[in-house]
Amino acid sequence: MNAKAEVTDACDLRFGQVGIACVRVRRVDAAALCDELERRVRAAPQMFARAAVVLDLSHLSNLPDDGAVDALLEAVRSAGMLPVGLAYGTSETEALAKRMGLPLIAKFRAAYEPAAGSTSPAEPAPRAEAAPTVQREPILSAPPSDGMHGAQHHAGSVRSGQQVYARERDLIITGAVANGAEVIADGNIHIYGSLRGRAMAGAQGDGKARIFVSDFRAELVAIAGQYRVFEQIPGDLEGQSVQCWLEGDKLLIARL
């Protein structure tokens, strides 16, 4: 009698683009951190409740001790978010992550981490800022993003739960982006349909990137880490053709 064949493949392991927010800690105050994150969750529960976040400690003058970091992580959890790791940083950060049993997320490089082959600091990790005021004076042209390849085209709609990422190029969507769907590009994003989900341009820090939408009903738009969340679209923007761009640290939106 033949023995039963042994099943050796217990799982598949794959890497892909994952939507993770970055919490940049500016002072070691667990209570204040919890209050601020709770405010964000209350303002946009569909976006931030149980959101996966990375803790960036690079803007602190000194790396906190293990107990202080544990308190910060607990503050994130208490606010309703889920910390999944620390932002990639120095050897001290790596040692801290090992002691805390957390991974280092290389996508978020700390502000003090030098770029490869350079003595200047790398671009800081994306940060979440308070929603800026909408500006209604449009700018009709989009400057090309340096170093970008030809645009990536996605024919049809992007369904809820799907993510489309255009690496080192612009992204063109010829259909709708549904609630819960996510479109990301290192360059500009053009959506020739309704945007009901999330659109994030300049994902690697390109502040010149722009977002163009034919029918604006977004959950979130972001450029180079600066974002705006919408629980309710302003009446003069809902369903309109708009563009989004950065002026300094402000994300501006205007009808076309």
Rank of each mutant, 00 (worst) to 15 (best):
residue 117 G to Q: 07
residue 89 G to F: 12
residue 201 A to K: 02
residue 198 R to C: 10
residue 150 G to P: 02
residue 2 N to M: 07
residue 51 A to W: 00
residue 209 A to T: 06
residue 184 I to A: 00
residue 21 A to D: 01
residue 146 D to Q: 14
residue 73 L to A: 14
residue 37 L to N: 08
residue 79 A to F: 10
residue 119 T to G: 02
residue 50 R to K: 11
residue 19 G to S: 13
residue 240 Q to G: 04
residue 219 E to N: 05
residue 230 F to A: 10
residue 14 R to N: 10
residue 92 E to T: 13
residue 256 L to H: 11
residue 144 P to L: 11
residue 243 Q to A: 15
residue 245 W to V: 06
residue 60 L to D: 12
residue 129 E to I: 10
residue 250 K to T: 12
residue 27 R to H: 10
residue 67 G to N: 12
residue 121 P to A: 10
residue 218 A to R: 03
residue 56 D to I: 09
residue 36 E to M: 11
residue 255 R to W: 02
residue 97 A to Q: 07
residue 247 E to F: 00
residue 135 Q to K: 02
residue 204 Q to F: 05
residue 201 A to C: 07
residue 8 T to V: 12
residue 213 V to F: 05
residue 79 A to C: 13
residue 222 A to M: 14
residue 140 L to H: 11
residue 247 E to H: 07
residue 218 A to Q: 02
residue 98 K to S: 14
residue 172 I to W: 00
residue 154 H to A: 05
residue 186 D to I: 03
residue 200 M to L: 11
residue 84 V to Y: 00
residue 78 S to L: 12
residue 102 L to C: 10
residue 6 E to M: 12
residue 56 D to M: 10
residue 98 K to G: 14
residue 64 P to S: 12
residue 109 R to S: 09
residue 4 K to Q: 03
residue 239 G to P: 00
residue 251 L to F: 12
residue 69 V to L: 08
residue 119 T to K: 03
residue 59 H to C: 15
residue 165 Y to Q: 02
residue 111 A to L: 09
residue 35 D to R: 12
residue 15 F to M: 15
residue 191 I to Y: 00
residue 46 Q to M: 04
residue 255 R to N: 03
residue 230 F to T: 10
residue 50 R to G: 09
residue 22 C to Q: 11
residue 42 R to L: 08
residue 129 E to T: 15
residue 35 D to I: 13
residue 132 P to M: 12
residue 239 G to F: 07
residue 101 G to H: 04
residue 23 V to F: 01
residue 13 L to D: 02
residue 197 G to W: 02
residue 208 K to S: 11
residue 212 F to R: 15
residue 113 E to D: 15
residue 52 A to Q: 14
residue 164 V to S: 02
residue 59 H to K: 09
residue 190 H to Q: 08
residue 244 C to Y: 08
